[in-house]
């Protein structure tokens, strides 16, 4: 049972971070970050390079050790709950030359559904194929992963997360190095997930698309700068505080405009 002293928002949230701190080299790279992911939201984590965004995700998933802080999944400590979380790592963190087919990679998402003596079942294979259909990669199931383009690799990773049928999917820069068509396809899948009531949390680097893609943001630079619904938190003031002097006033003004026009070519607009 979740602790009775916890707030309602924390118990309802698929991922609540409280005071999460991670250090490297005697120095905090993530310092005392609080963030309660609203259930059913699409949230972005935003900040400059080296702001500790990926580290925060890894600490939230229990991959990296925390110096302090609590991570709760629906109010329970992270260590007791893992079925609710799916993770899509950065594409560049993988050796894509690994001898595996697309279907094998997606099958890795079914790890917890199989005991060691089982060799897979028709039902599970169908689940894997369904996720591939959802990301539009069903025709590539037997392809070696090294033969895919960057965008296709990212879709395969997404399919692997889909097959886990998790309440919360955590993505580390899903749009890094992918083409516009893939970006549009991925965002479509993510939005359909949200419409099913699932929660998404993304490290995102393209400030121009934040308003369009996400409903909540966490702005951070080692510490949390601001968090909340995009309209409230994604402000000029907060961006300035997050990025320091690295954004020009013109850039800032464009970014926080509710409907940016012609800011970036190639992205699909609704």
């Amino acid at each position: 049972m979740p602790d009775s002293r916890l707030g309602k928002a924390v118990i309802a949230s698929p991922l609540a971070l409280q005071g999460v701190t991670v250090s490297y080299d005697h120095r905090p790279v993530v310092h005392s970050v609080d963030f309660v992911t609203p259930p059913g939201s699409m949230s972005a984590i935003i900040g400059p390079n080296g702001a500790g965004k990926s580290t925060l995700l890894k600490a939230a998933l229990g991959i990296t050790r925390r110096l302090s802080g609590e991570v709760r999944v629906f109010g329970r400590p992270l260590e007791q709950e893992t079925r609710h979380l799916a993770f899509v790592p950065q594409r560049s963190s993988i050796d894509w030359d690994f001898p595996a087919r697309v279907i094998d990679v997606v099958g890795m998402g079914l790890y917890r559904d199989l005991r060691w003596w089982q060799f897979g079942s028709r039902k599970l294979r169908r689940r894997a194929m369904e996720s591939l259909v959802r990301v539009g990669m069903e025709g590539f199931a037997e392809r070696q992963i090294g033969q895919l383009s960057g965008g296709q690799q990212q879709r395969v990773f997404l399919a692997r997360a889909l097959v886990q049928e998790a309440d919360l999917t955590i993505l580390d820069e899903p749009f890094a190095g992918v083409d516009a068509a893939t970006e549009a396809a991925i965002i479509q899948v993510l939005k359909s997930l949200r419409d099913e009531g699932r929660t998404l949390l993304c490290v995102h680097h393209d400030l121009a698309t934040v308003r369009e893609y996400f409903d909540h943001v966490l702005l951070m630079n080692v510490r949390r700068v601001a968090a909340g619904p995009v309209d409230e938190a994604f402000t000029e003031d907060n961006l300035q505080a997050t990025y320091g002097g690295r954004l020009s006033p013109v850039q800032l003004a464009r970014l926080v405009e509710p409907t940016p026009a012609g800011w970036q070519e190639g992205t699909e607009r609704r």
Binding site: S23, L67, S68
Partner: peptide
């Protein structure tokens, strides 16, 4: 250095939680 930093961070977080009347769960804090 790691131990020192850990204690400083925990103590600080504990004090802030006290000051804001938030519950504290962490054993070390």
């Amino acid at each position: 250095a790691y131990r020192r930093l850990r204690r400083r961070v925990h103590l600080r977080q504990g004090l802030l939680a006290l000051g804001r009347d938030e519950p504290i769960f962490d054993g070390l804090t």
